[in-house]
Design a binder for these strands. Structure first.
Ligand SMILES: [Mn+2]
Ligand SMILES: [Mn+2]
Ligand SMILES: [Zn+2]
Ligand SMILES: [Zn+2]
Lengths: 141, 141
DNA sequence: TATTCAAACGATAATGATTCTCAATATAGA
DNA sequence: TCTATATTGAGAATCATTATCGTTTGAATA
């Protein structure tokens, strides 16, 4: 249950936190902005403040429950930390986000950091391009 | 001369643009925020507006004279487009930025995009870690 | 060289995302 | 159930960036 996750993370089990966590789990879109989360909850009839959403997301991230990404769109997007690490490719036309993991790239990153005298602690890799989805506007066809 | 660069880029040769371009060329730090550029110019006795700096940087970028990066620090940083493409590693303690280019990673990116049905147009890769610089605060020793 | 006018400028207001403040409320433990 | 404390929601504040607007300037032309 979500209450468990919050307790394990050292966070009090509160109604707003449960609402947000549940939304993150059930939503079809894995990558969402704070405002999107806020809006979805409000549209769903919930009473919650935008500041609370931001606060909860910051706490979830500190607890390792979620990760945040800065795609070029400007806003920060959040996603539930489930499964192994991965990076992203974003369609510059329709915004679709796909995930990938590449062992070779991950290894090279470690080697590069080491060769430059850095102790690697994190990385951000995002690819941008045009997708071939049937729903993507601007597809030649 | 810098005037040449502006003309070739299809931009009028104006005093503010020359000041900014010259600063970008002469500054020891290759990666700077708009505000840093503005402040350095003002401190140097120049009269210029922050809005003008932002405008000029946007035009320079559109003209391919500079590139912009979004490191996790929040603000956008700009750098003169000189030499070949490269990515960055940033020290999370002192903010030092080093550049690198890795052929293997670049190739893998193309392959990954293709395998996911994307036409790759750009990418952003930034590594984060702790550097071993003598000047880096928090170094053990 | 003087004239002209669209482009560019600088000051400042506006915007959008995120964070802070604070009085009211809810949680976890006694 | 009672209490101390953490959390909440509304709205103000902040920070980076962009838009507005009256004035100035670059560069083409007379
Ligand atoms: Mn993801
Ligand atoms: Mn660089
Ligand atoms: Zn698409
Ligand atoms: Zn350092």
């Amino acid at each position: 249950m979500d209450s468990e996750e919050l307790r394990n993370a050292g966070l009090k089990v509160t109604t707003p936190r449960l609402k947000i966590l549940t939304l993150l789990e059930k939503s079809a879109e894995r990558h969402m902005t704070a405002d999107t989360i806020y809006r979805l909850l409000v549209e769903g009839g919930e009473v919650i403040g935008l500041a609370t959403v931001y606060r909860a997301l910051a706490q979830f991230e500190a607890a390792g429950l979620i990760t945040r990404h800065h795609f070029d769109s400007g806003q920060t997007v959040y996603e539930l930390e489930r499964g192994p690490h991965h990076d992203h490719i974003v369609c510059i036309r329709c915004g679709r986000v796909e995930e990938f993991y590449d062992k070779v790239i991950e290894e090279r990153q470690r080697e590069i950091a080491a060769s430059l005298g850095f102790t690697l602690s994190d990385h951000a890799l995002t690819l941008y391009g045009e997708c071939n989805s049937q729903d993507c506007p601007g597809r030649q066809g």
